[in-house]
Design a protein around this nucleic acid. Structure first.
Length: 314
DNA sequence: GGCCAGGTGAAAC
DNA sequence: GTTTCACATGGC
């Protein structure tokens, strides 16, 4: 009975009440917080939070104290450094493990892309150590990179915040106190049928019509994002580019950051500049060059080079 | 105040 | 097939 009581108290209040009897008629009640056990631990050397959350692959993680808070699935999640690990608390364990790609072997991936001993990449890997590619939800990633077109990362984050606040729902809070202001990403069904006027409050400019087209095509099942997992990367890219506002670059970002196609090599203005200035390679030749130089995980190499190029000008 | 931003689609060559 | 331009907005 007492155990059940304590379990309930822990479940709902995350505290245990310690009752100390001083005498038969007098007692003290002390509350002892019980730390919520982490959902997942990832070695710190494979997960640098500042780099991973700010490298332009995800736009919803916010620094709070010494950690980051965000949303995985419908749940608020907090990441903190804890000794030699990143401790991730909250969320459904299987969803969290998938989102952070817990099974990935980053020693092997980094070793693979560095096989050619390319000096620019070696330097970029050195400065970006701890960067890991996330496996974000397909729909959220698709919308995020539609919004990214001709935009900067700070503003992309702001637009996505307003999108979630306006059309999402409050995230399931952590019982250790993270609450209210975090919202889920709105579903395709919620955005389908909206007008550009409806999206005016999020101030995404000319991209509003693209978001609505994506929502209509996904909600009507004209495009099945889950089914893309079964296709080759080339086939999946072809399907994604059926959506207005999704060209080769946006499709590659979705494939890399959501479908874990680590061979996808998005070519934005930064990476196009890097390829031309450092390697003398023009945009149309980049895919073949990247595969030959960096191998089957060249998308990870792309992200290191992207992070390195940006960090040199900020 | 002007340049630029994790581009794309359409029209003009 | 390649080049050019408009598309909204705001950070720096």
């Amino acid at each position: 009975m007492m155990c059940e009581f304590i379990n309930q108290v822990q479940k709902y209040y995350n505290h245990i009440y310690l009752i100390v009897y001083c005498s038969k008629s007098r007692y003290n009640i002390n509350m002892i917080p019980i730390p919520t056990p982490p959902t997942l631990l990832i070695p710190r050397r494979h997960f640098d939070m500042d780099i991973t959350f700010n490298c332009g692959q995800a736009f919803r993680w916010r620094k709070q104290d010494s950690g980051y808070i965000g949303v995985v699935g419908d749940h608020a999640v907090i990441c903190r450094y804890d000794d030699g690990n990143v401790a991730i608390t909250g969320g459904e364990p299987s969803q969290v493990a998938h989102y952070f790609d817990a099974a990935a072997d980053y020693d092997a991936i980094v070793a693979s892309i560095c096989t050619s001993r390319d000096p620019w990449l070696m330097q970029a890997v050195q400065s970006g150590m701890g960067l890991r590619i996330l496996r974000q939800p397909h729909w959220e990633t698709l919308c995020s990179f539609i919004i990214s077109a001709c935009n900067n990362i700070k503003r992309i984050s702001g637009i996505i915040d307003r999108l979630c606040l306006t059309f999402g729902k409050p995230a399931v809070a952590l019982n250790s106190g993270i609450t209210g202001h975090l919202h889920t990403f709105p579903t395709p069904q919620t955005l389908a049928g909206l007008t550009e006027l409806d999206l005016a409050p999020i101030r995404c400019g000319f991209r509003a019509k693209y978001l609505i087209d994506a929502a209509n095509k996904v909600a009507s099942e004209q495009i099945n994002l889950e089914a893309l997992q079964e296709l080759t990367t080339t086939e999946a890219r072809k399907v994604l580019t059926q959506i207005n506002g999704v060209g080769e670059k946006v499709a590659d970002c979705v494939l890399l950051f959501s479908y874990n196609r680590l061979e996808a090599f998005p070519k934005d203005v930064w990476i196009t500049r890097v390829m031309r200035e450092r390697y003398g390679v023009e945009r149309r030749d980049t895919d073949a060059f990247a595969l030959q130089r960096f191998g089957e995980y060249c998308g990870v190499a792309q992200q290191f080079l992207f992070h390195d190029a940006r960090s040199k000008t900020q």
